[in-house]
Amino acid sequence: MATIKELSRKPELLTGGHRLCAGCGASIAVRQVLLGANDQVIAGSATGCLEVSTTPYPFSAWKIPFIHNAFENSAATMSGVEAAYQSLVRRGKIEKKMKFVAFGGDGGTYDIGLQSLSGAMERGHDMVYVCYDNGAYMNTGIQRSGSTPFGAATTTSPAGKVRPGKPQQRKDLTQIMAAHDIPYVAQASISHWKDLVKKAEKAFSVDGPAFINVMAPCPRGWRTPNEMTIEISKIAVQTGFWPLYEVEDGEWKLNFKPKELKPITDFLKPQGRFRHLFKPGNEHLLETAQAEIDKNWSRLKKRCGVE
């Protein structure tokens, strides 16, 4: 992989002037993913913060061809673009080598767009799907999603007198995608840019579908200071909330192996959405959160053949 200095010579494919909030993790994710591409890229996005903020008519932050269709169909839409490419190349109408990437938030990916994503991956389109995961429907004002962590307060899972935030655990989308047995699946974080860019590069280079789930915090929804976006992503990795791993042709590999995980409270504490968990009497909720992390971490290590 190129060094950061070499990467800095690449053209900026997502310009400034978009309307994402200060400190948004989504555009950091997009920039790092696009740095992994070495050919012409065609991009698309599901409805969501990224799409709304990067294409408010008549402005577009995309210096590459871009398409937004709707919320639940970023993958299906891009599968059509890729199919058109295959056809037009075969018919001699296009020669240039191109790669295809569809972005979606966790709402558009874990939830409403899961069928479309699953279908596109199963069909084997030569495309990359990137979920920028910020753990809620942030665009519509912080509603819970299948990716929202246990205990998080959102506007549809508020911390109330009888319900302390989201009662369910997260769905493990990365493993669902790994079960599709596609050439490449990875989980990455904007805090580990080298790992992320390398994963993007792999994803773009495989012949067939690839999926990357990227930790991309939302300061507004997480109730964290703007400058903390990268740092909290790093803590997510260090606590085992967001393990970095990849599944390459069925081979599971853990990319970050701390001797000991930091306690999950390190991840929860700085975030306003978990504040209620730290009230006296809620200790059991923190224990539940920790137990879930421990369980998932040991399962993942086993899968990756670690220990």
Binding site: T15, G16, G17, H18, Y57, F59, S60
Partner: peptide, 12 residues
């Protein structure tokens, strides 16, 4: 939008 990247004309 006929010019990709014209968001730069918008000053944030």
């Amino acid at each position: 939008i006929l010019e990709g990247g014209n968001a730069t004309y918008y000053k944030t």
